[in-house]
Simulated assay, not measured.
Amino acid sequence: MDIGEGARPGLRERKKRETRIALSWAAIRLTVERGFDNVRVEDIAAEAGVSPRTFNNYFASKGEAVAARQLERARAIADELRARPASEPLWEAITNATMARFALGQDDHRGAEDERWAEGLRLMVGEPALQGEFMKTSAAVEAEFAAVIAERTGTDADTDLYPRLVASAVGSAMRVAIQHWLRAEAPGTMADLLRDAFAQLANGLPTP
């Protein structure tokens, strides 16, 4: 009996996370296909197979739902980074953690084979109505990274400059890599771009 009672909260939290991710993906897909202004909360809920009321339990707006995927990925990378061996050099650990999570979600960037999808993503990233949500999410992402970097380096994310500086660099590298992937004519894979970005940061951004 005790085991069952202890197991239920874990299952409940997992289902809540799955619903949140499904809603975010639905918001992204519909925004890419129709344009942000042509997507309603009701459409997103229907696409995810839930009610509008359920949507409102998870997100305050459709913009927040679109941006949520970025935060979910960052949390997954942070969890992966916590699990990396303590002996692994920091930038190597950051790179390996990021690669592990992007490999699991490789369909996030399927536009490499689908120009229509990539063009829709370009429009979504440039959508003025979403910029505020993306900025809020970026701040939350950097806070996630700063916490785990502080843990690995024995620093304090609130009082020390180092973990927040590294977290900001990681977040910026990911944003730049994604933007480059979306805009370049032959950008290569997202994994290659991220490895290159992190390697340049690890080497102190040497002059090309």
Rank of each mutant, 00 (worst) to 15 (best):
A46N: 03
R110E: 13
A93P: 15
W25C: 11
R195E: 14
W117H: 15
E119R: 09
D160M: 04
L201P: 02
P89E: 07
I77K: 13
P85T: 01
R73P: 06
L121A: 12
N56C: 06
E144G: 05
A173V: 02
D37F: 08
S168T: 12
T54M: 09
I77P: 07
R17S: 01
T54R: 12
D156A: 08
Y162H: 14
L123Q: 13
I28H: 02
S172C: 08
A45I: 03
E42C: 04
G188A: 02
L121W: 11
Q131L: 14
G111Q: 04
D43E: 14
F36D: 09
R152S: 04
G126V: 00
P85Q: 01
T137L: 09
E5T: 03
A157T: 00
M190F: 07
A177C: 05
M99P: 06
E127R: 09
W181R: 01
L193W: 02
A129E: 15
L90Y: 09
A199F: 12
V32Q: 10
M1F: 11
Q131R: 15
N56H: 12
K136C: 03
V166N: 06
A112P: 01
L201V: 03
G188I: 01
A46L: 04
A74E: 05
Q200E: 06
F134N: 12
D2M: 04
A199W: 07
I21H: 09
S51K: 15
F134E: 09
I178R: 01
V166Y: 15
D37M: 09
A100Q: 09
I44D: 11
